[in-house]
């Protein structure tokens, strides 16, 4: 039996705090910096058409994305991405909780879910284009159709694996259904749900790009393909960098949210490990 208590952590006396801080910054930026220097040196020593130097890419980045392109291309993409992610999470958690709690429903849908999850999401783009035309709705639908599965399936699993002793305790204390959902089922499933959300984010980003590469006259995916077709190499690289930055930003926001939502869970893990 593990005793779940909150641990109070006293700030450790750090005499070498500054030294350690400097060391970890050095570790954090040292290797990326080294890579950039090598890349820059390489591209000046032996200029390759498809690999311009980081300086040129940075210049192209500023010229291309800062200004009107931000409003016409970046913002609409980000809007569709955000909408797609939010819808995926909401639909995934709602449907997942329902399917996880109702056993016959789960058994009814299980083979279908297995199949639909296995469909590579980009192949849905032609189908969505046929049914919805080349619209913003279609792009959001494609994002949701591909990105909902990790949250959905993880929620089902998480809800299913709620500790049975706790469920029975809740029942014998006559806790209402809504309260049980709020205080027992969802918190118990939340580590799994968050693991699903993490995958959902990356799938959604991929689908945003792909759907724009396919059928669009604006957006990041469209722009990057346009640059490539017109041999604007540095601009194309700047688009790749921008997509990378969006990916990194999403991951960073996610880890902050996860830390807050799952603070209790990480706390328990730490106590168990100690």
């Amino acid at each position: 039996m593990t005793l779940y208590t909150s641990t109070i952590r006293l700030p450790r006396q750090r005499s070498h705090a500054w030294k350690r801080l400097g060391e970890s910054t050095l570790f954090a930026i040292g290797f990326p910096f080294l890579l950039l220097v090598i890349w820059a040196a390489w591209s000046t020593a032996a200029p390759a058409t498809f690999f311009p130097s980081p300086v040129i890419i940075a210049q192209a980045f500023v010229d291309t994305w800062i200004g009107p392109a931000f409003v016409t291309d970046v913002l609409p993409s980000l809007g569709r991405l955000a909408l797609g992610i939010i819808l995926s999470i909401v639909i995934g958690i709602t449907a997942g909780t329902l399917i996880g709690l109702v056993r016959w429903l789960r058994e009814l849908l299980e083979p279908l879910l297995e199949f639909f999850r296995a469909i590579p999401p980009p192949v849905l783009i032609p189908v969505a284009m046929l049914l919805l035309g080349i619209t913003d709705t279609m792009k959001v639908v494609v994002i949701v159709a591909g990105a909902v599965w990790p949250v959905l399936l993880n929620t089902i699993e998480g809800v299913r694996s709620t500790d049975s002793v706790m469920t029975e305790t809740a029942r014998s204390f006559a806790i209402t259904r809504a309260e049980r959902l709020r205080y027992l089922v969802l918190p118990a499933a939340s580590p799994r749900i968050m693991a699903g959300v993490r995958q959902t984010l990356s799938v959604a980003l991929i689908l945003m790009v792909i759907s724009e590469m396919f059928a669009s006259s604006s957006g990041l995916g469209y722009r990057i393909t346009y640059f490539q077709r017109n041999y604007l190499i540095a601009e194309m690289w700047s688009g790749i960098v921008l997509l990378g930055l969006i990916g990194v930003l999403l991951a960073a926001v996610f880890s902050i949210v996860e830390k807050r939502v799952l603070r209790w869970y990480h706390g328990i893990k730490e106590v168990e490990r100690a």
């Binding site: 040292g30 990057i224 490539q228 790749i240």
Partner: peptide
């Protein structure tokens, strides 16, 4: 320790962003 930030930066880059580059090369 040295590669941690690099990995965390490269990992979330959507692979499809590299499609144009792959086509060019």
């Amino acid at each position: 320790r040295a590669t941690h930030t690099t990995v965390e930066f490269l990992r979330p880059i959507p692979s499809v962003a590299l499609i144009p580059l792959a086509i060019l090369i």
